[in-house]
Amino acid sequence: MGSQESAAPIARTAPDADFAADVLDGLSGAQKRIPSKYLYDARGSELFERICDQPEYYPTRTELGILQSEGAAIAEAVGPRALVLEYGSGSGVKTRLLLDALDAPVAYMPVEISYSALAASVAELAADFPDIEMRALCADFTQPLTLPAPQRAADRVLVFFPGSTLGNFATEDAVDLLAVMRADMGADGLALVGVDLQKDPAEIEAAYNDAAGVTAAFTLNLLTRINRELGADFDLDGFVHEARYNPEAGRIETRIRSRRAQRVTVAGQRFDFAEGEGILVEYSCKYTQTGFAEMAQRAGLRVHSSWTDPDGRFALQLLCSEDVTSA
Score class of each variant (00 low, 15 high):
Leu24Gln: 04
Ala179Gln: 06
Ala17Tyr: 09
Ala77Ile: 10
Ala17Ser: 14
Lys32Tyr: 00
Leu223Ser: 04
Gly29Met: 00
Asn209Cys: 06
Asn168Val: 04
Cys52Ile: 13
Ala117Phe: 06
Val106Ile: 13
Tyr87Val: 09
Val303Leu: 12
Glu229Val: 15
Leu222Glu: 03
Ala191Tyr: 04
Thr288Pro: 07
Ala72Ile: 02
Glu49Asp: 12
Pro144Tyr: 08
Ala191Arg: 01
Met181His: 03
Asp131Pro: 00
Glu112Gln: 06
Ala119Cys: 07
Thr254Arg: 00
Leu230Met: 05
Tyr208Cys: 06
Leu137Phe: 09
Arg156Asp: 04
Ala293Trp: 11
Arg135Pro: 04
Met134Asp: 06
Glu70Pro: 05
Asn227Ala: 12
Arg257Glu: 12
Leu47Thr: 10
Phe234Cys: 03
Gln54Pro: 03
Asp196Lys: 08
Glu86Tyr: 13
Gly291Val: 08
Arg228Thr: 13
Asp25Trp: 07
Met181Tyr: 00
Ala179Arg: 11
Ala20Cys: 11
Ala211Ile: 12
Ala42Thr: 15
Asp128Ala: 15
Ile51Ser: 10
Phe129Asp: 05
Thr288Ser: 15
Ala274Leu: 11
His241Gln: 00
Ala274Tyr: 05
Val264Arg: 11
Asp311Tyr: 10
Leu280Arg: 12
Glu282Trp: 08
Lys94Met: 05
Ile113Leu: 13
Ala126Lys: 02
Thr142Arg: 04
Ala153Gln: 12
Ala127Thr: 07
Asp16His: 10
Leu223Lys: 09
Ala232Met: 07
Phe129Ala: 01
Phe169Pro: 00
Thr13Gln: 08
Asp18Pro: 00
Ala11His: 13
Ile204Val: 15
Ala207Gly: 10
Pro15Tyr: 03
Gly250Tyr: 10
Phe292Cys: 05
Glu282Asn: 09
Glu46Val: 14
Gln54Arg: 14
Ala179Asn: 01
Asp131Ser: 14
Ala139Met: 03
Cys138Asp: 05
Pro59Asp: 01
Gln289Phe: 11
Ala21Cys: 08
Ala274Glu: 15
Arg135Gln: 02
Ala202Cys: 12
Ala72Arg: 07
Gly238Gln: 03
Val264Asp: 09
Ser69Met: 01
Gly167His: 02
Trp307Cys: 02
His304Thr: 00
Phe19Lys: 00
Asp140Thr: 05
Ala123Leu: 12
Asp103Val: 13
Lys32Glu: 08
Pro59Thr: 01
Met1Arg: 13
Ala17Glu: 08
